[in-house]
């Protein structure tokens, strides 16, 4: 399964890029397991995605919770709580 992942704001600055294509292993099926997968990439990633920080997720431009399933071709975005207005 191939997905596009976008990062915004503080998270984008921490990982140092804004977008990537990821070929997911078969056992990664939702936001929760994707976060765990990303957390294994190293210290910066573990800090962000192991649950210490609030990281919101969207799939195809819709806010979703961590149990939401991911499908081939999805655009997944990770970002901190929003601060507009």
């Amino acid at each position: 399964m191939n997905i596009k992942v976008l990062y915004f704001a503080r998270i984008k600055e921490s990982v140092n890029y804004s977008t990537e294509e990821i070929a997911l292993p078969v056992d990664i099926s939702n936001i929760n397991t994707l976060k765990a997968f990303l957390a294994k990439r190293g210290e910066i990633w573990a800090d962000l995605f192991s649950g210490k920080q609030v990281v919101r997720a969207a799939i195809n431009h819709e806010l979703v919770d961590d149990m939401m399933a991911i499908h081939d071709g999805d655009e997944v975005a990770f970002f901190p709580p929003v601060t507009g207005g």
Binding site: A9, A58, F79, P80, V82, T83, G85
Partner: peptide, 11 residues
């Protein structure tokens, strides 16, 4: 709702 849901971030 905008304050809590719209994806804007201020620096």
């Amino acid at each position: 709702y905008l304050k809590n849901q719209a994806p804007f971030w201020k620096k």
